[in-house]
Amino acid sequence: MRREGSPFQGLSTVFVKELSDHVSSIRMLMLELLIVSTALAALYEAISSLRQNTAEDPFLLLRLFTIDQAPLPSFVAILGFLIPLMAIGLGFDAVNSEHNRRTMSRILAQPIYRDALLMGKFLAALATIGISLAALWLLVIGLGLIFLGVPPGGEEIARSAVFLIVAIFYAGVWLSLAMLLSTVFRSAATAALVALGIWLFLTVLWPMLAPALAQAIAPADPRYVLLGLNDPATAIWTQELLRLSPNDLFGEAMLAVLSPTTRTLGPVFLDQLRGAVMGAPLPFGESIMIAWPQTVGLVAGTIILFAFSYVLFQRQEVRA
């Protein structure tokens, strides 16, 4: 049986309303304050360290993103940690709050399909994050210009723009997850707790668990152990397991794009490096190729999680 009419009718209305809700909400203000202040701290450290040894680095601007000065992690690492928090903060009550406020049936009684409501909410939250990240990106470039005094080159801008796009998809994964949980759980508090639990598990616990699991799955060959080397099978398993976490995918993609000298993201054999000029930057396109699988992984994660919440939401009873 085919439905008649466009599933996108009312999409822009929902989008604009949700966007204005997000932008004017106190929740968003707090999240932005948190991210901007920690990011600025990381940037300050990065700038002061770069000013001391401004060598002949062709990618000075990119160093702003990646350099880390103890005790603070790099700007990119901080974002990798905080973007999920922001996405969860915007998505955890997207669907269940409409039920709890008893606005769901009233809104769905208007001439729109459910598609428009869910899609509008998702896009509005993603746009909110996108705007914040773009502002942060401009801030980094601006501060780099002021304090380092070196105008950024075209390739640096292109690489940092790729950073921005991948970061938005990284946020998309977490946003889809948060919205899925907001569809599954009627209580916003439960959805938020589960989302934060998954976030902490994947960013903090998983990097510790993955090597242990890899050891269990592919125990290191005693011959490697005797030589004091890592068993490549174990190393590969560790990396494959780590890549289940979007956090890791984001980190790897950023490493490839923002550090042009990165040649590979996995373990390599020495013979594979034969003929390579170590320390020489890769061209922009090659770096993109290295980051491509990770980026696709993030996009796919976003789409799959969104599809799950879409199906669940379509089948959900309107009544509370």
């Binding site: 049986m1 085919r2 439905r3 008649e4 009419g5 009718q9 009684a109 208007q110 001439p111 729109i112 399909y113």
Partner: peptide, 9 residues
Amino acid sequence: AREPLKVKQ
């Protein structure tokens, strides 16, 4: 079931 938008309008 088929034309909900027209009904809801």
